[in-house]
Design a protein around this nucleic acid. Sequence first.
DNA 1: GGAAAATTGAGTATCTTTCGCATCTTGCTC
DNA 2: GAGCAAGATGCGAAAGATACTCAATTTTCC
Lengths: 157, 157
Amino acid sequence: MPSRAIESPTVPDGDIQLESQQIKQAGLKVTAPRVKILSILENCGKRHLSAEDVYKELLSQQEEIGLATVYRVLTQFESAGLVCRRHFEGGQSVFELNSGEHHDHLVCVKCGKIVEFADSIIEERQARIAAENGFEIEEHSLVIYGVCSESGCQKKA
Amino acid sequence: MPSRAIESPTVPDGDIQLESQQIKQAGLKVTAPRVKILSILENCGKRHLSAEDVYKELLSQQEEIGLATVYRVLTQFESAGLVCRRHFEGGQSVFELNSGEHHDHLVCVKCGKIVEFADSIIEERQARIAAENGFEIEEHSLVIYGVCSESGCQKKA
DNA sequence: GGAAAATTGAGTATCTTTCGCATCTTGCTC
DNA sequence: GAGCAAGATGCGAAAGATACTCAATTTTCC
Ligand SMILES: [Mn+2]
Ligand SMILES: [Mn+2]
Ligand SMILES: [Zn+2]
Ligand SMILES: [Zn+2]
């Protein structure tokens, strides 16, 4: 096997640098729990995670971080604009990295699969409806619940 | 003052007959708690009520109905199609009579005012989006959060 | 009016999320 | 790099909403 030269002393696993910088830019102190949690949100494979999901992932990585801290940090990330919190029915809140671009969700009520979408016509209509009623929009939540095309989900009750 | 003839022996306060019939048609036994709760949903003035709201209203009417029963009955009414349950952010679930016609909501984040709306273009778009992604829609939730036109709500933070 | 089945009330349990507080870290200064 | 104040953490406890348990009561139907 080819030997691999160590190019520089600074390329730790998980790109700690990047996460640290994002956290700093968000106006938060760089702490181990924050870096860890952000890196899980970025690298764990799933895009929508509950606080519990994050906590379990931490446990599986032998990290000694309390659940209260997970909740606290996620809330701080939300305030700082790093993540978005979503409230889907019948479960815990879930968090996802804030991509900067708004989108809404399709959720399979059978398997939990989530599909993201953005529709400018819907957005436009919402703006009109709010305006017609004298509301200044702050945010909105649109979730479509249904059954996805997986065979397991399709079979009748 | 003109005297008023009693037209028939059957016109109790609160139109108990009507509620009883609705409950029966929904396939539920007619019990005092169910009749009472349905009549509150119909006559209390507010259209969107939490279980707690219903419970407080019952208390104020000297009714001896437990909170657990309120939750149970509201859930049964929901299953029976008599009421719809809504999940607005940051609070309890709220219930409203099922008018038979779907609608969505605008919610003032300052005063809690709720405006109902229905937009066929949005509905149509949702159907298309679901179809494009192979989903069969079961339901959806659209809530627009904003600040209403009340002067109290308008003033800057 | 009576019996079977369903419903109720009260309290308890559960789940998710937040708090309180003593202890530990971070970021900055010298 | 040591020292310090502000801020963060972990733990356990608390809170808020809702569901469950079960004995006692009520409804339905005959
Ligand atoms: Mn998403
Ligand atoms: Mn409504
Ligand atoms: Zn599915
Ligand atoms: Zn308002």
